[in-house]
Write a protein that binds this DNA or RNA. Structure first.
Length: 241
DNA sequence: TCAGCGGGGCTCTAATCACC
DNA sequence: GGTGATTAGAGCCCCGCTGA
């Protein structure tokens, strides 16, 4: 059973002033692995710190999701702003024809070399798996919704979850994972599993809004979500195509 | 015709505000 | 500081459009 990190886990951390945000990400992963290994009575191999200048890293646990939550623009204001960009503001946004939607090129494009180099060579990531390739819809960038939906029907494989994680998702419907966003910033994010009556989906929530904002994600953008593992920790990489 | 899925509405919870 | 009102976030699920 994976335990969440707390401030106590970082009491021995010595901050190097030269660390970039990405180094903090790697350190957190290291601490997480140590904790995991301790619980299994085996010392973990430390991940290699790199000196890339990635920004935007932040740490959140599922127990402080609401801490520091600020009120944001109300929905009406958001809609009014959005209407300004739409051709027919009085009408519902036109649905995208299925042919324009998440039609995955066959074969789907491989992970960009820059991402592969960062994940595999610098982060020591293993087991890269394409989880989904989809077009971003309004609901994916709607700040009120604050979620990225991953419909089961579009998921390439569910193998990115091991048995324990699948069980955790079934039991608690959510788990904390790491997301490497298109600008290569590391973010802690919540992976939820929503079971609907006729279908199910995975949903990235919680810090998704900041990913949208930081990467200027917009409706219509094609993205890929890759999964990989840092030691045993489940991580994702979001790639904008 | 019908299954699938995006869009968005409803409800509950939590944060914040206003007032005492 | 306590309490009720207001507002926004999060989770869930229904509606209806689209394409097979």
């Amino acid at each position: 059973m994976m335990e969440l990190l707390t401030l106590v886990d970082f009491k021995d951390t010595k901050i190097d002033p030269n660390w970039g945000p990405f180094d903090y990400l790697l350190h957190v992963l290291h601490v997480d692995q140590q904790k995991l290994q301790k619980s299994q009575n085996a010392p973990p191999p430390p991940p290699t710190l790199c000196k890339q200048d990635h920004t935007g890293f932040k740490l959140r646990s599922k127990f402080n999701n609401s801490v520091g939550l600020k009120r944001k623009r109300n929905l009406k204001a958001v809609e009014e702003e959005d209407d300004g960009d739409q051709v027919a503001p009085k009408l519902k946004p036109n649905r995208i024809k299925k042919q324009e939607k998440s039609v995955c090129p066959i074969p789907p494009p491989d992970l960009p070399p820059l991402f592969r180099q960062l994940i595999v060579e610098e982060m020591g990531g293993r087991g890269l798996v394409l989880v989904i390739q989809k077009t971003i819809f309004f609901s994916d960038i709607n700040p009120t919704a604050s979620r990225f939906s991953i419909p089961f029907s579009q998921v390439k494989t569910h193998d990115f979850l091991n048995e324990a994680e699948a069980k955790e998702l079934d039991d608690k419907n959510s788990m904390q994972v790491w997301l490497l966003d298109p600008s290569m910033r590391g973010t802690s994010i919540t992976l939820n599993k929503w079971v609907m009556r006729s279908s199910s989906l995975y949903v990235l929530t919680n810090t998704w809004n900041s990913v949208v904002k930081n990467n200027q994600l917009e409706k219509g953008h094609m993205v890929q979500l890759w999964s990989f593992r840092m030691n045993s920790l489940l991580c994702f990489a979001l790639v904008k195509l």
